[in-house]
Design a protein around this nucleic acid. Structure first.
Lengths: 356, 356
DNA sequence: TTGTACGCGTTATCAA
DNA sequence: TTGATAACGCGTACAA
């Protein structure tokens, strides 16, 4: 069914022979560099056309040492966050005639280490990664040691020689939290899927910038309002739908349950909405819900979701642009983007005790 | 900032020298093929370890002619349909130690042709594609001519020597349509984003199997119920949000407007829901809506959406498995999967005239 | 302007 | 079991 072709592909040598010129002359004519008489050029081009010549990019990479390929490592391409970022990366890469090779890690460090190794072996020109850990970074350092640029998508890792494309969520998270406070909320929960492996501060994990960032925005807003953050209301490592339901259950059984819930990302937001619907909790009548992430369906949920919307397409695009700049110019500037709040109907005044 | 490394990577020759053996002996020891005395093997492995040797996959591809890479061509990775399929492809590829390289085409034939050329030049081992046209297939034929397997994702193209992974929507589309008929609907619209370039039959485009498939399911169900399909109600090439709003507008200004709308995919479904909300049309009180596609947020829309759910992760996985089989075994079996209907709350009885 | 010859890092061939 | 050598297809220094 899938036999190999009998006649192999035409090479530069074949084209040269047919055009009756030397190999390097053909090579120059095809690559349009150096100097070739226009008469010869036409003859070479014609010969190439006739033979259906196509350059072998593998051979080309072999002696240029460059592959015009960007390696992209994300936790899950299925997540709209990363698929949108990927589209941005892909569009930017395409515009500069680069290709994109993808690896999913499921937030698994071993998989990430493996992906880096494979990409390095394949001689990608640069690697774009949303790292799962800010502490185990030997493999990321290895990228730099190999002489290839490294671009950090969204998450910043201290002590690493890399370009980072950051999306600052803090100001928007601050704004959203303050809005909740204005509406009378004092018991505000934050549920995050983050599995961190680093230090923690007062029970809060630290180290991965995007998390610190979100948390700072929230905590600062609470502090301004003189509301003491309750560790009971801040939950990490909530990774499955089941765990989300459990956490929601626990939160509502607290002596003083939350009146608002902040979701760290769209998956958590979905699971929270599902769990609340299961329990028949009215939104926003009984609880306000705000997602610290956006996704295409956010205007259409019941009720339409108030979100902190990060410009991820732009971030992906910027990451690829930075990677290509670093490859070609040996330098690239870090990028900082800002999320913004989109107010819709999933938040409202804090319920009074009588309505609860 | 991003200087090239001073000391280049260790090669087989370096390892061989350090271990005090010949280049080919080292190569055999590292690749664990041929025969090497265990004493020498250990020495070579130790030397490789010390030098931090890593094989150069580009050089390897160069003379094996294989790259352990699958090229994947989709219209838009941002679309959950393709991002989920991509995850399936990626997981299956990963399990067999293959890599995945991605191209987006935005349903643009030129981009698809370009992507094929690039992938061929890069010597991918096989190409998985959801083709945008069933007629312009020279570039797809070129894949086969080059001796590489071609796997068609979701869409079947006649007259092409390729393995296809099909998702049959027809039975589920039939079932969903019949359900609508049972509920009293006789005016059922179908809105599709498909931009086809082929023949049409009674104004309906034909040729791309997944479309014929959906349409057949719907038309068969109508025929069984002795309802004559109205070409006015069947709309193709609805690709933008604006166009969707226009089409909705047009449909509702018909003398006999639809009481149910079938959406071809999740993007169209989103735009339809948005347009209906804009017009304040009650779902399902005034119109029933069913999507012929599923996506993670379908249970959480207002109202929860009745959908025809295609197993796309499985389709992606199967496509990659078939591609790898074709590469390694020279043959692969086509795969046929079935979508199923998930009944939720966006469909209901046809409104009586008095309520309209 | 043109052509020859070599290098890139690997695997494959083959004689020792 | 081993190692010298060729081959993959391209770019490119260098000489003509």
């Amino acid at each position: 069914m899938f036999e190999r072709p009998l006649n192999r592909e035409a090479t530069v040598a074949d084209v040269a022979r047919r055009a009756g010129v030397g190999k390097s002359t053909a090579s120059r004519a095809l690559g349009s560099y150096g100097s070739v008489s226009s008469e010869v050029r036409l003859r070479v081009l014609a010969a190439a056309e006739e033979l259906g010549y196509r350059p072998n990019e593998v051979a080309r990479s072999m002696n240029t040492g460059r592959s015009r390929t960007l390696g992209v490592i994300v936790s899950d391409i299925e997540n709209p966050y990363f698929s949108v970022a990927m589209r941005g990366i892909s569009d930017a890469a395409n515009a500069s005639r680069y290709n994109v090779i993808l690896a999913n890690t499921s937030e698994n460090l071993e998989a990430e280490i493996h992906a880096v190794r494979v990409f390095l072996d394949k001689r990608v020109d640069a690697i774009i990664v949303a790292p799962s850990s800010a502490y185990q970074i030997e493999h990321l350092k290895a990228i730099r040691t190999s002489g290839r640029p490294l671009v950090l998508l969204d998450r910043k890792v201290p002590g690493l020689d890399a370009v980072s494309v950051e999306i600052s969520i803090a100001p928007a998270a601050h704004e959203a939290t303050s809005r909740l406070v204005e509406l009378g909320h004092t018991r505000i929960a934050y549920i995050s899927s983050l599995q961190t492996d680093g230090d923690s501060f007062a029970g809060f994990p630290l180290g991965i910038s995007s998390v610190e960032d979100r948390l700072h925005g929230i905590l600062d807003a609470l502090e301004e309002a003189a509301i003491r953050p309750d560790p009971e209301l801040i939950r990490f490592k909530v990774v499955t739908m089941e765990r989300t339901a459990e956490v929601i259950e626990e939160l509502f059984h607290l002596a003083d349950p939350p009146t608002a819930i902040l979701a760290s990302d769209s998956t958590i937001a979905r699971d929270i909405l599902l769990a609340l619907r299961e329990r028949d909790v009215g939104i926003p009548a009984n609880v306000s819900v705000i997602a610290l992430d956006d996704f295409p369906w956010s205007p259409l949920t019941a009720p339409p979701l108030t979100v902190v919307s990060p410009p991820i397409y732009e971030a992906g695009f910027a990451a690829a642009v930075a990677a290509i700049e670093a490859i070609e110019e040996r330098t690239a500037k870090p990028v900082a983007l800002q999320a913004r709040v989109i107010y819709r109907d999933s938040h409202g005044p804090a319920p009074t005790h009588s309505t609860r």
